[in-house]
């Protein structure tokens, strides 16, 4: 049956509308769970608030378990899902740069837009920074090109590269997630509680 759009159950023309609806819901939930606060986001790095980690870990778990169940029951074809291509060094360097930006700015690109929507000035500055970054990158694209599109590994997943059954992988991943939750809870309890306004 699924995925709905590639199998033409929902036509391609709808994809933008669906994308907008999902985007609205995503933005709403980010804001509603307090992700537009840079303190909360940066809390992961300082060890007083791990909501970001928990939310994203849980979201990944829910979706991966859901997808695997749907795949198992034949509602969804696992193999026709889009897998983001891996450009190894591009991803590593980009990830590091984004991490630095995350700690210092207190937002990640998605949440910064959320925060702009509720009128936070620091977020607007942050988005300005993103735009400047994009501009510099686009101007120097010929210089970055070898890293940007080099080290191409294709559309690999962790399961492919580790060569284990996806089911075991998810099980291990769940255990890791739960252990991570417990550990970060212990770390959080050692720190002072911080209240946001």
């Amino acid at each position: 049956m699924g995925p709905l759009i590639p199998n033409d159950i929902i036509s391609h023309e709808w994809s933008y509308i669906i994308a907008i609806l999902i985007g609205l819901a995503f933005g709403y939930i980010l804001e509603a769970s307090g992700f537009s606060s840079s303190r909360k986001l940066a809390g992961v790095f300082y060890g007083y608030d791990f909501v970001v980690l928990k939310v994203f870990f849980t979201a990944a778990l829910v979706s991966v378990i859901g997808i695997l169940y749907m795949d198992y029951l034949g509602y969804l074809d696992f193999n026709s899902l889009y897998v983001h291509p891996t450009f190894l060094w591009g991803a590593i360097i980009g990830g590091a740069i984004m991490g630095i930006g995350f700690v210092s700015g207190g937002f990640c690109p998605g949440t910064s837009l959320c925060a702009v929507a509720i009128g936070k000035i620091d977020a607007m500055v942050f988005v300005g920074g993103i735009l400047i970054g994009i501009f510099i990158f686009s101007e120097l694209i010929s210089f970055f090109e070898p890293i940007y599109s080099g080290y191409y590994f294709g559309n690999v997943t962790l399961v492919d590269s580790l060569g284990i059954s996806p089911y075991w992988f998810v099980f291990i991943f769940t255990i890791i997630a739960i252990i991570a939750f417990i550990v970060v809870d212990i770390i959080r309890k050692r720190n002072k509680k911080i209240f946001y306004n």
Binding site: L61, I65, Y69, Y167, F171, T174
Partner: peptide
């Protein structure tokens, strides 16, 4: 919730 996750993931295995 953690147990639910474990059960569901274990179910897959």
């Amino acid at each position: 919730l953690a147990i639910i996750f474990l059960v569901l993931a274990g179910g897959l295995v």
